[in-house]
Write a protein that binds this DNA or RNA. Structure first.
Length: 482
RNA sequence: GCCCCCAUCGUCUAGUGGCCUAGGACACCACCCUUUCAAGGUGGCGGCACGGGUUCGAAUCCCGUUGGGGGUGCCA
């Protein structure tokens, strides 16, 4: 197994257990580890914690790698190492346990879970009381190996929270090997970290209570414990830890919703951390390069942060607006029907980019431009009723229609379309905002959408005029089916 | 129950004893701009959980209370 970074830099690790989806909280700690590994010239080790065989599937691993790739943690980057699999080191885990037993740091116990509970109840305590500590039991089926927690106290030096002191009296002699001989997570985790020469463990705060146990294990195994860092958990609106059951936590689901990875990364990184000097910037939008350079564990906030989708979407909107037409068209491509004319879409793209919260919203905003020959857009009746209401509206519509119909080919562009509209509306003494309302509904079917003249330019004269004439007919002949 | 962590606008945060009349961002509201909707501009609303100390001076330090969170498995 690998033991050091080629560069000799610090070794971080990200150790997810493979389950169906990739948790946004996991994404955040992965990002923290990644930023640090790269900035410090170290290594990001990916280790799949696949010990719990019952709930694992091989394809989950690929899911993790894909998700990491999506947020910019590339397996082909020099700072990336792995994936390693915890299951591959099962022998090492057991061997370590054996060493612990031989050195007296661990001992066997034949009490069942139920018996431990009964004893605790009888003694009026909680947990395991150390019943078998000095009974000198040997290994045997059904017996668990427990760690002999030493006297005293354990201080965890944490890079985000400072020193945390645990009184060893409050830590029971925890299980290392199950009755069937298989290693527990805590043991496997530590053994792997030691074997992989991990120097820095950066993970979510929920692991903090486990840390003194792990630190004792490192020491009992003759290794120097890593630097620890526990970042606060992400919570939902009820301030509870984000849970798979109740909350939308799958990174993939945000990707499918049309959240840009850059927006997700920016949001996740600035959740509980602000780059120094950010206030002067007046914005919370930062490039990965800037965040990677500035990220430091000592600047991470101490309290749990609410994962606010509204703010995520706000970030996303910013990123879509600024992404560049070409990249935008490429990004939405898979959301668009295959038969849509891409060059036509590219023409309207600049006008919709600053109106989108999510990539997926693009389609319905411009669908009226991609109907079959001679088909009318679906009409929003409320908008139609409202737009036809003013007395001058039908007449203005008729005039605009005929003006547009008589426009020369060369003049079919948004400037002259606007100018023509303006000269017509002057006769009715209405402003452009109102004048464009009915033509808009006539052409797009709705009252909101991309800028009208630009849209009509893209739609083309023949189709635009056809739709306008249809609308003229509809207002003039009451009862015409819409 | 026990252990551990935490506590600034609705949310994410800046703030490490005087620059704080507490700053920014998101959200919300108003106005301006405007080709609808957006975007953009300007302004507004809104917070140091509470009580004691320490100090000339406390959002910042200490203690307590309250509140929230995490953990407490032969899960990971």
């Amino acid at each position: 197994m690998t033991t050091a970074s080629p560069s000799g830099g610090p070794r971080f690790r990200f150790a997810p257990s493979p389950t169906g989806s990739f948790h946004v909280g996991g994404a955040r700690t992965a990002l923290h580890n990644w930023a640090l590994a790269r900035r410090l010239g170290g290594t990001f080790v990916l280790r799949i914690e696949d010990t719990d065989e019952a709930r694992n599937r091989p394809e989950w691993t690929q899911g993790i790698i894909d998700a990491l790739e999506w947020i910019g943690i590339s397996a082909s980057d020099d700072h990336f190492e792995g994936p390693h699999f915890q299951s591959a080191n099962a022998e090492g885990h057991v061997a370590a346990a054996q060493r612990l037993f031989e050195s007296g740091a661990a001992y066997y116990c034949d009490l069942s879970g139920q018996e431990v509970q009964d004893r605790a109840k009888e003694l009026g305590i909680t947990g395991y009381d150390g019943y078998s500590r000095d009974r000198g039991l040997e290994a045997a089926p059904g017996r668990v190996l427990r760690f002999r927690v030493p006297e005293g106290s354990t201080i965890v030096h944490d890079a985000v929270r400072g020193d945390v002191n645990f009184d060893n009296d409050t830590i029971e002699d925890f299980v290392l090997l199950r009755g069937n001989g298989s290693p527990m997570f805590l043991l496997a985790n530590v053994v792997d970290d030691i074997d992989m020469a991990i120097t820095d463990v950066v993970r979510a705060e929920e692991h903090l209570p486990n840390t003194p146990k792990q630190q004792m294990l490192w020491q009992a195994l003759g290794a120097t414990p890593p630097r620890w860092a526990h970042v606060p958990v992400l919570v939902n609106e009820q301030r509870k830890k984000l849970s798979k059951r109740r909350d939308k936590v799958a990174l993939e689901s945000y990707r499918d919703d049309g959240i840009l990875p850059e927006a997700m990364v920016n949001y996740l990184m600035t959740l509980g951390w602000t780059p120094p000097g950010a206030e002067e910037a007046g914005s919370e939008i930062f490039s990965w390069a800037a965040m990677e350079e500035a990220f430091d564990l000592s600047d991470v906030t101490l309290s749990p942060a609410f994962f606010d989708i509204k703010k995520l979407v706000a970030f996303n909107k910013q990123y879509i607006k600024n992404m560049g037409v070409e990249a935008f068209v490429a990004a939405v491509d898979t959301d668009l029907p295959a038969e849509w004319d891409r060059s036509r879409f590219t023409a309207i793209a600049p006008h919709i980019m600053e109106r989108l919260e999510r990539l997926g919203d693009a389609r319905e905003l411009v669908d009226f431009l991609f109907l079959e020959e001679g088909a009318d857009p679906e009409l929003d009746h409320a908008s139609w009723d409202k737009a036809t209401k003013p007395e001058w509206a039908p007449a203005l519509l008729r005039d605009v229609t005929e003006t547009y119909a008589s426009l020369a080919d060369a003049d079919w562009n948004h400037e002259s379309l606007k100018a023509s509209m303006e000269s017509v509306m002057a006769n009715y003494e209405v402003k452009l905002g109102k004048a464009q309302a009915l033509p808009r509904v006539a052409v797009t079917g709705r009252s909101v959408g991309p800028p009208l003249f630009e849209a009509m330019e893209v739609l083309g004269q023949a189709e635009t005029v056809r739709r306008l004439r249809g609308a003229v007919h509809r207002v003039e002949v009451p009862g015409t089916p819409e």
